Computed example of a mutant assay.
Amino acid sequence: MIEIYKKLPKTNCGECGDATCTAFALKVINSQRRIQDCPYVANKDSKLALNKPVATMDDNYSRVSYELEAVAKCVNFKDASAAIGGGYEIKDGEERITLKMINKPYEIRRKGLYENDTYCIDSWSKIIIYDYVRRQGRRSLTAEWVTLGYFTNTASHVKAFQRNAEEKIATKFNDNKQGLIIRCKELGGVAAQGQMRADYIYQFGLLPRIPLYMCFWEADDEFSASCKLFLDSSAEDYIDIEYLAYLVERFVEIFVH
């Protein structure tokens, strides 16, 4: 950490998002930040290069994705596809599991994860899909809609989730209900009914057995539009909750762009 700290401006300017250079250096060494996130390091010449490589978040994610890939390659493809709601086929003599994540098609082959017939290099896509395949939840949907905070060890994520996910959708479509409907359909959303009363309720497939329910209330004379996102309470049987939180935020980023 000291070695990293020496390369920083030591001004505690806060431009990286952390209060002090010491806090930033600690996160770098713990693979929670990249040293390039400091604008003063990123913009200087090679004299600021570290004397030895430091693991970054991307390195960490890549390592985890390959570890999960090794496990996923060894599952019984036919059984796994049935358990996770995917398709199973043999093409060119090779077993394949087909599935969609946020309405985007993927194939799991013995060689790895493929997108548009090309090996997928996105570490997060691999982590999420491989974790989903290896868990093979097998639990039926409960029809019990819950927020992210329902699941164990997610209390610390709730406020950030509301700000980074639900409020983004509400703000984006505050006075554009037609745009909301069009975007829902573009991402495979299906009008639904359920436990909540809202102006619009749409169901999306984050993964085949992990539905996401979006409830949207239009703006009126007193209040701005609002949005709540719900999951089926069975979701934790199918995917690690940390990965699930990221998957929902990823859905939102796609939805609002």
Rank of each mutant, 00 (worst) to 15 (best):
F255W: 01
I210D: 02
S65N: 01
R138G: 09
A165M: 02
L212G: 00
N30K: 09
K7T: 07
D232L: 04
N30T: 05
W145D: 07
E94I: 14
C38T: 01
E218Y: 11
I182K: 15
E222Y: 14
R135G: 02
V41H: 13
G189S: 08
S234T: 13
S62F: 11
D240A: 01
S123F: 10
L212F: 01
Y243I: 05
P105H: 06
K6A: 12
C74F: 07
Y132M: 03
Q162T: 15
N76I: 10
A165S: 01
A55V: 12
I127D: 04
T22W: 08
Q36M: 10
A72N: 06
D59T: 07
C215M: 06
I35H: 07
A219I: 08
K52L: 08
D175N: 15
A143Y: 14
Y40N: 09
C215R: 07
R138F: 10
Q195L: 09
L231A: 06
Y238E: 00
D220L: 07
I4D: 01
Y132T: 03
E67S: 10
R138S: 14
M1D: 11
R197D: 04
K44F: 05
K47V: 07
V248D: 02
Q203M: 08
K177G: 12
F255R: 00
N116Y: 09
V248Q: 02
A70V: 00
G112I: 02
V64N: 11
I35R: 13
G14A: 08
L247K: 00
I127L: 10
V28N: 03
T154Q: 09
L247A: 08
L148T: 05
K100M: 07
S46C: 06
Q195R: 13
S46P: 00
I254M: 09
I239F: 03
L8S: 07
I29F: 12
R135D: 09
R63D: 14
S31Q: 07
F223Q: 15
L207A: 01
S125K: 12
I210E: 01
A70I: 00
Y40C: 05
E115C: 09
K47Y: 12
R163D: 15
I102A: 07
R134Y: 05
P53A: 04
G179H: 09
T118N: 11
L141V: 09
E167N: 15
R183E: 12
Q32I: 02
L148G: 02
C16E: 00
L141D: 10
L207T: 03
T142I: 06
D59P: 10
A219P: 10
S65K: 00
G188I: 04
R209P: 00
C74D: 00
L247W: 03
E67N: 10
V190E: 13
S81G: 04
K7F: 06
V158S: 13
F77Y: 01
E67R: 03
T56K: 08
A82D: 10
M214H: 03
S156F: 11
L113H: 02
E89W: 00
V158Q: 12
R134C: 13
D131Y: 03
M214W: 03
Y238M: 03
G149F: 04
C74S: 13
C74L: 13
I29D: 03
F173C: 08
Y130V: 03
Y119G: 04
A80T: 15
R109P: 02
F24N: 03
E253Q: 11
F251N: 01
V158H: 13
R250W: 08
F204H: 04
